[in-house]
Design a protein around this nucleic acid. Sequence first.
DNA 1: CTGTTAGCGCCTTCAG
DNA 2: CTGAAGGCGCTAACAG
Lengths: 339, 339
Amino acid sequence: MTKEQATNIREVAALAGVSTATVSRALQRPDQVRPETRQKVMEAIKQANFVPNSQARNLRLQSNHTVILLVRDISNPFYLEIYKGVEETASEAGYKVLMGDARNSEERVANHIEMVRQKHADGLILMTGHFPADLLENQELLPPLVIASESIPGLHLPTVKVDNRVASLEAVKHLLDRGHGNIAHLAGPLPEALASERLDGYRQALADAGVEYRDELVIRGDYSIESGRDAVQRLLQQNIAFSAIFAASDQMAIGAISELRKHDLSVPRDVSVIGFDDMIFANAYDPPLTTVRQPRREMGQRAMSLMIEILSGRSTAETIELNTDLVVRGSVAPFPPGR
Amino acid sequence: MTKEQATNIREVAALAGVSTATVSRALQRPDQVRPETRQKVMEAIKQANFVPNSQARNLRLQSNHTVILLVRDISNPFYLEIYKGVEETASEAGYKVLMGDARNSEERVANHIEMVRQKHADGLILMTGHFPADLLENQELLPPLVIASESIPGLHLPTVKVDNRVASLEAVKHLLDRGHGNIAHLAGPLPEALASERLDGYRQALADAGVEYRDELVIRGDYSIESGRDAVQRLLQQNIAFSAIFAASDQMAIGAISELRKHDLSVPRDVSVIGFDDMIFANAYDPPLTTVRQPRREMGQRAMSLMIEILSGRSTAETIELNTDLVVRGSVAPFPPGR
DNA sequence: CTGTTAGCGCCTTCAG
DNA sequence: CTGAAGGCGCTAACAG
């Protein structure tokens, strides 16, 4: 009962009594084939349990309708929703998505770019803040690239991002308005662009309010839970006074809160905290996290749309800027500190 | 200064003054080429900025060294660590990994299997509990498949999993030992195998302790935060008494705790909670979550190892069972309820 | 509407 | 150690 499997179009053609071209057309452009012929072909395909080989097709077409989504650190659930957005738009347009993990390593970025040059994929959506310097030289040799969320100095490519400066400014202002003067900032991996933009917003808000900026209140992290923990530990150890924290990621915010609790400091009673991202857990946390929402799904969709544009030959130098919202929940005290 | 790019081996061959076969060999089997010749070829490659086309190679080799990791629902960060394990082992062996999202849909499982049959990938690591029934019929036609974490009735394939029954039994026993009699179970999507096994462990623990099993204490969910919330809501609405919860995932546990809090119930004071997975957030949560740790990284590594075995022609009907641990943290009260 | 034909770029016998 | 030649499976002119 096991039917012999046809492994190529030729066997199917023989079975259906037509040429290979007709089989190919029946599959790719059914409307160019007479219904009866098409019928015959389809039957042969079914009977022979035939599945077209996409590799041959890809080679012939010089494209494989696959895109790589390369993220800074796949441990961060932030990227899950992005992936979904990318995947949605991709699959509508017949593209597949490969998610890769840069593990914060420049070398791995280079690897993935190499994969695209080898035609493993048609293009690369980049979500890292670093980029191999040597590739910056000959930018004409770069494969189709789109940047999402981040930005890379010296690399001008289609980009979708948010206005990190303004988003941070608003978050910090929210804290200032509630009477906080000593606001710590758990920053990203400075001096990367993304981290710097958020730091700029923080500084601007302080300046606008006439509050002095102090270096010791800014701790560099890497967006992970662990680095949020470490930052608070350092602040506490060094006896630096602070009544509020603005973290550059929800993960750092949560790590910070968790560490504060270890030292019997309660949020928001003793310390107010604002995060960044509004990841899925933010709302289920205790206290529910006040945070800057990024439209992740849409960011993914837009990035993929840009990629499709590029791959379709419509050149796009566009930079899309999406809006953020401050989502007020329970991690910021409604009253001034020291009460 | 922009060098013309060689797009194939022939141009390189011409440039180096050798045949295409030699170029190919210089790249794939350097030892079979005289050092000087190799040198010449390498120079030509560099000069022409040549990158071999992997598609052509794949077609020729009938393999593309890519594996798909298909997960039930990519929103669940549980899979991130699995991906890392898979990716590690994969890249050591020269494989790439494509992560796909089944979105709890059987159709999408079928799609991805189709992708493998079309040679988009060499094999598929399956992490879903459902499987298209029609594919169960002709199992000889299935492409290389490995199952991880889950299991599918009627489908006997190389598998790596944990003993869900025993893991659950121990978790529930932990609760029983601390005086809890009314233990709710937030189950997975019954009647799937994974969910059933965990439910079995729950029932067994009850039976061992001589506690009556009650249907209304078991609520079916889908491992998401939302479904944990919903379950608690339902329990509360129907006025079903419970002093402890054993959830089949950390996400459900967290959703449950968050919902309990909304009703002014505190964990662990009013209700004790145990989760499953030990995902990254479990430890940073408030209260730190007591949960069953799954060796996710290793699970991913093992699954990929099995896949490599299969793809290398070494057939493996093996089922690997990994150990779990109950990680005791702060979400279970150390004292009996009702105090 | 259908068939013939010529590759896509690479690897691998088979000779030398 | 190297070269010539065939073919992986498919698609897209080009004819008919």
